[in-house]
């Protein structure tokens, strides 16, 4: 009896605690609902209607027509495929470079704050400014990059005006801008690793490479997945660099999805179709996030 009564009391206390907890988190949840859920639901609702800026009303319900239009549009499919390639490209390259630099920095003892400060500089800059600076640097005739190349005998490179080179130029600039993000996150992960396994491995005669493969990588897995995931989501949204540097050109060689959606919304004024495209993009990112999250949980 005492036991049951005790449990009953505990339940009541728990419920009180829970109620108090809900009361405390209610303001935050309301805000979240207003600023995140509401726009998403609103976009979903808009995507099911023929909503344009010329006739901004929800009078015509169009079902999935906007989705069919988007998926049937060759330009949309081209942009989506290009975005997929771009995202894989930047995330992988930034990861490899970022991890290498993080490993090196992890060993550094002196002037660490100085390195940090330098590395963080690009990350602190607005992407629009990054785009403008690089547009100036990469000017084929008046830019400093081609000038430096010419001093060692390379002809002028058509950084942004060649369909084959332009996307790589964007990738390079994106790496310059974003790689520090990878470095900082991975470095934080490395710094928090315990020292003991390494000492034990050394005693057993493992070399640095073996230590990296069998200790560092497995212990870093969670950090790596989270870093990749965040970077991946950001990369899908790349818009500023394209807007400033190429406007999707030359031809359609750098026409990434976010910029395409922007044009559908604010040039074509077709908010309905643009919302449908955003929902498709959101679904793709969500699926990827869920997959990576599950993967992370599974290996724990």
């Amino acid at each position: 009896m005492i036991g049951i009564g005790g449990i009953g009391n505990a339940n009541a206390a728990d419920r009180r605690d829970a109620r108090f907890g809900y009361a405390l988190s209610a303001p935050a949840l309301t805000m979240l609902f207003l600023v995140i859920l509401f726009p998403v639901v609103s976009a979903l609702y808009t995507s099911l209607h023929e909503y344009t800026l010329i006739a901004p009303n929800y009078d015509t319900f169009s079902g999935f027509e906007n989705f069919m239009l988007a998926l049937g549009d060759q330009e949309f499919r081209h942009s989506a495929w290009l975005t997929a390639k771009f995202v894989v490209g930047v995330v992988l390259l930034e990861f490899v470079i970022g991890f290498a630099v993080a490993l090196m920095l992890n060993k550094v003892e002196r002037f660490k704050p100085v390195y940090y400060a330098i590395l963080l500089c690009p990350l602190l800059m607005n992407p629009v400014i990054v785009g403008l600076i690089w547009r100036m640097f990469l000017h084929p005739n008046l830019g400093i990059v081609n000038y430096l190349l010419s001093t060692v005998g390379f002809g002028p490179v058509n950084w942004l005006g060649d369909t084959k080179i332009a996307i790589w130029t964007i990738i390079l600039v994106d790496i310059w801008h974003q790689v520090s993000f990878m470095i900082v996150l991975l470095l934080a992960g490395l710094a928090s690793l315990p020292k003991e396994p390494y000492e034990a491995a050394r005693v057993d005669g493992a070399n640095s490479f073996q230590c990296f493969i069998h200790i560092t990588l497995p212990m870093m897995r969670t950090v790596i997945v989270v870093t990749l995931l965040i970077r991946l989501i950001f990369a899908v949204k790349t818009y500023d660099l394209i807007y400033i540097m190429t406007r999707g050109g030359p031809g359609i060689s750098t026409d990434l999805l976010s910029y395409f959606i922007y044009r559908t919304a604010f040039v074509s004024l077709n908010i309905g179709e643009a919302s449908a495209m955003s929902i498709i993009l959101l679904a793709a990112i969500l699926a990827l996030t869920v997959y990576l999250y599950r993967y992370m949980r599974a290996i724990r």
Partner: peptide, 8 residues
């Protein structure tokens, strides 16, 4: 024209 004017 100069190299790169396709993106000027």
């Amino acid at each position: 024209g100069p190299v790169g004017s396709a993106s000027f």
